Amino acid sequence: MVGACGFSRRAFLAAACAVAGRALPAFAADGLRLAAVDWAMAETAMALGHPPAALAELIGFRDAAVEPPPQGTIDLGLRGAPNLEALSLVAPDLILSSSYYSAIQPRLERIAPVFTRALYVADEPAFPKVMALLAELAQRLGDPAAGPRAQAAAQAEFATLAGRAAGFADRACLLFELGDSRHIRVFGTDSLFSGALEAMGLRNAWTARTSFAFAAPVPLEKLAEYPEARLVIVGRMPPQAERGLGSAALWNSLPPVKAGRVHRLPELRPFAGIPSALRFAHELVAALEGRA
């Protein structure tokens, strides 16, 4: 809206950003202008065709992004302690958050309405929640048709991957990150990646309890209890750990290692949305096929 002086809100924002030494944030051609402090929310908004104008920890998000954020996206600083001045200058219509950041929600609400969900809760499967989030967020953004459309596309993609993975369904997968040459973090059945496994018709070998998607730290010796599993290492291994693993007698004595049933995946986001779940699924199927 333009006032009597002919100075629009956009022009005011551009001037304010110039004073602060920041670029003018991206504006959606239509719909709500978004800012995101939670990466799962940001991914979901992008999958719906509504990328946020501003995003917390932008550089980190880009590092393992399924889809890079648009040029001109504003960095809001830390997810748990965003720069409120920068957030105010963005002038969002809606802030996307999650239960991880409930402590700062009152401060966010002083800037704009907040859309938040508890996506990752101990002992509660995350995959159905992030799938449902597509429809819930689309509804809140005033674009309700985008949610079912994105869900149908994701389900079709998982079905295609399930066809490719069918030949590997005879063995369960043990998914883990390697902290050092003696300890691992195991993804449990409440994790995003475990949900993606199930969507492909595969099984998670780890059925014990976890804490917010992980069991950690778990001694490497625990892997000896899963002689029939496929071992799937998610993410980059510390160089020292990788060197130590290559010469570790315990590791090299494990039946999956001796049989060549060890698969390496790149850095992936375990606390994200359906786009990251699909990326995990694609990477896993490619790794399995590479060893077939």
Rank of each mutant, 00 (worst) to 15 (best):
M41T: 06
A45Q: 06
P69I: 07
Y101K: 07
A64F: 11
A26E: 00
A29Y: 00
A53P: 09
A18W: 12
P92D: 00
A86V: 14
I59K: 15
Y101N: 13
G31E: 10
I111E: 02
E67A: 15
A29W: 09
P92L: 02
L55P: 03
A65S: 11
P68F: 06
P51M: 00
A45S: 05
G72M: 03
E109D: 03
A54K: 02
G60S: 10
A56D: 03
L94G: 13
A64G: 00
L48V: 07
Q71R: 12
A26N: 14
A103D: 12
R79V: 05
P68H: 10
D75I: 09
R107M: 12
A112E: 07
P25R: 02
G80Y: 12
L55Q: 10
G77V: 11
T44Y: 05
Q71G: 04
A45P: 08
A45K: 04
A40Y: 08
A54S: 02
A40E: 10
A103V: 14
L24H: 12
A20H: 02
T44F: 01
P69L: 12
A53F: 11
D38C: 10
F61C: 02
L34A: 04
T73D: 00
P70G: 08
A54F: 02
T73Q: 01
L89C: 03
P52S: 15
P51C: 01
A91T: 06
L76R: 01
L89N: 01
R62G: 13
P106N: 00
A64M: 12
G72R: 05
P68W: 03
S99Q: 06
S98T: 11
